[in-house]
Design a protein around this nucleic acid. Structure first.
Lengths: 225, 225
DNA sequence: TATTGTTAGTGTCTCAACTACACTAATATC
DNA sequence: GATATTAGTGTAGTTGAGACACTAACAATA
């Protein structure tokens, strides 16, 4: 155990980042939780995250923690909100800068559980009890996700490189938890000039094959309207 | 000088809040700056703000610092973003949770400057050099303000209790830096059912007097569409 | 008291975008 | 070849935004 201490003239809070990582699996919005190995809330589920290193930027901390705990990297990440109620952590004052992140359904394989970490996907509407104020963080992330669906290309972060328009529509329907009209959806997405046909098609059962599309400007999330 | 030290097993950053306080004065968007009394950036201008107390919530810290430095309280305050680049403060690692705030033009009187503080209003488009990364914080606050004009009742926070529709239109025009059509603006605001006539009028020069309106649900900022 | 200058206040038409809505096309399976 | 299943397409109606010009009411002044 390290016996060195870090001393300051004024009290300092600890600073962590926590990450709400969403994906779509099995036609459901899911998110990633980590089982806590230590008190408080030992054995309970919590968001991935951890303490900020003194020389790393906040977003880097979130990326590092996520990779350490799950092996996942190179994903879309955005700062969500900072949670800092005085008693949110029973140990000491902890300020948590929360991020939310999205990952395509073809990249959700986690690294195997180890002594240090056990991670698992949970359906958003069937979450277990969460440690600390993580429930509140999850709610806020969900709000943001739903809002951004309408005015940004954030939904594309859930998609693999190629996809059918029905699959894309499904993403919108799942997250917004409502059915959309097929013709209107296609008109809407095509009018925005965000996707183009690849010329390929997907045969996927005993029915007409679907055209495969890809995003014209992958990677970046744009504001649309 | 206090000689007591606060010691931790791991290094901790300092946490501050900074506040971007907007108002409208003289038909211009203005914001409040504080002259720094101490290094670094001694004598330069910076956002009001300061270190978090260990037992106060983040928003309370922002309110307290603002009141200490300006005497202003009871205003609309919203968390903006958390700035935490590793080198943003030359002294030590400092995480700043930035808030932005709006105040009505009839409440902008500051408490007199003291040895401890000198505060002043600056036009948004004529800001001096700012300390730290405060320029970046201001830009982000401005972006948020302009965006929220369209889909929330945030503009009402700039208004006194009673106001004319022309005055309200002026607020929108000033912040968006563009002229709006009077008839369309009135149609838009009235269709949203946010204001109602008080029956009073304002006589204000050698021309037709204007009806005074007030907000139906003052205080809260709502999402509109 | 008539004229002038100034701001308050009002309605219509056009266009673009969204909504609702139903059938044919292409495939695999049996 | 009959069936089941998903892909793919167009039109009409409605709604909201933008462009646009004149009258109303007052104070000041001649």
């Amino acid at each position: 155990m390290n016996t060195k201490q870090f001393c300051y003239w004024h009290p300092h809070p600890a600073v962590t980042t926590d990450i709400v990582l969403f994906t779509l699996r099995a036609e459901k919005l899911q998110l990633l939780l980590i089982r806590r190995r230590n008190p408080p809330f030992q054995g309970g589920w919590a968001l991935p995250g951890g303490f900020l290193d003194m020389d790393e930027d906040l977003a880097d901390c979130a990326k590092r923690e996520l990779e350490e705990e799950t092996g996942i990297k190179n994903i879309y990440l955005e700062q969500l909100y900072t949670f800092g109620k005085a008693k949110r952590d029973p140990r000491e004052r902890v300020i948590s800068v929360a991020y939310y992140a999205l990952i395509a359904s073809d990249r959700i394989t986690l690294k195997p559980a180890s002594d240090a970490t056990e991670a698992a996907w949970f359906a958003f509407d069937e979450l277990p009890e969460l440690a600390f104020d993580h429930r509140e963080i999850v709610e806020k992330a969900h709000e943001r996700l739903v809002a951004k669906l309408d005015y940004s290309t954030i939904a594309f972060q859930f998609m693999p490189k190629q996809f059918t328009l029905s699959e894309l529509q499904n993403v919108y329907e799942t997250i917004r938890a409502e059915a959309l009209d097929k013709r209107n959806f296609r008109k809407w997405i095509l009018a925005r000039n965000l996707v183009e046909a690849t010329g390929l098609e997907r045969r996927n059962g005993s029915h007409r094959p679907a055209q495969l599309f890809h995003f014209k400007r992958p990677g970046r999330v744009e504001i649309i309207r």
